[in-house]
Amino acid sequence: MSDIKGLDWNKTREFNLERTNIWISFAFEILVVVLPYVVIWILIGSSWNTTKYHNYYNFLPLKEFLLSLICIGYVLIALTFNLITYFLKWQREDSFTFTISIALCLAGLIINSIWIDNLSIGGFAIFLKLIFLVVFALIGIFIGTLITMLIRNFRFKIEEEDQILLEAHKNGEEIPSIKKIRLQRAEKYRIRKEQDLQELNRFKKELDEKIAIELKNKKIEKLDQRENKKRNKKSNKK
């Protein structure tokens, strides 16, 4: 077995090794996601445009539309910086889940405040904002998790291709093309799906047999009970 084959490639996929360092992640979210949000919220957020506090919200042309565009741009910029740090290997795939969920959650708070602050509902406005905060957070977690999974699966495919190429080089074999590797992967996937289907059909067959046996046993029990009742009636008449 070659040194390459001796490597435990699955070890690199363990959960603890796939997470971004907590302090790096925390610093990034504070500096790139939270602080820009606070600046936008205080300078042009509609919630601060009151008789007591004044900001630049009313000076914006088409203020509701422009503020919404600024919030969308804020989310995209945060995601872009996250992508840069990922390519620089400062962060791992899990960082996208945090960045998108937090950024979308905070941006949603500003966007929803535009129309909620115009409602005359008193303290209920805070409760309504919290509801939308949770909704946007859940949407962000879903999108972030999806992106994290897609990027991680793509990286796994690249690692698998690199492993095959390295093993062929180490053993002095012909270096397979990427297309050939993908065909081999597709064939393995097809075989695995067929095996899963066979296993599912076998499980269904066993389940049907068990159900048929149970139904048969219940039918026999009912017949026995009827026979016993008839016998008991006959014995009572005697």
Rank of each mutant, 00 (worst) to 15 (best):
F15A: 11
R19V: 10
R19M: 14
T20N: 02
T20F: 03
N21Y: 12
I22G: 07
I22S: 13
I22A: 09
W23D: 14
W23S: 13
A27Y: 01
E29I: 15
E29L: 15
I30P: 08
V32K: 02
V34E: 08
V34F: 14
L35R: 07
P36F: 01
Y37H: 10
I42D: 11
L43G: 05
L43E: 12
L43F: 13
G45S: 05
S46D: 10
S47C: 09
N49V: 04
N49F: 06
T50Q: 06
Y53C: 11
N58M: 13
F59I: 12
L60G: 04
P61W: 04
L62A: 14
L66Q: 04
S68P: 01
G73N: 00
G73K: 00
Y74N: 04
Y74D: 03
L76M: 10
F81S: 07
F81E: 07
L83A: 15
F87R: 14
F87P: 07
W90S: 00
W90L: 13
F96R: 03
F96Y: 11
T97E: 09
A103T: 06
L109A: 13
I110W: 00
I111H: 01
I111E: 01
N112K: 11
N112E: 13
D117F: 06
N118T: 14
N118V: 02
N118L: 09
S120E: 14
I121Y: 09
G122H: 05
G122T: 07
G123K: 12
G123N: 14
G123L: 09
A125L: 07
I126H: 12
L128W: 12
F132Q: 06
V134Y: 06
V135Q: 05
F136I: 05
F142T: 08
F142W: 08
G144N: 01
L146S: 12
L146V: 12
L146D: 12
L146E: 12
T148P: 04
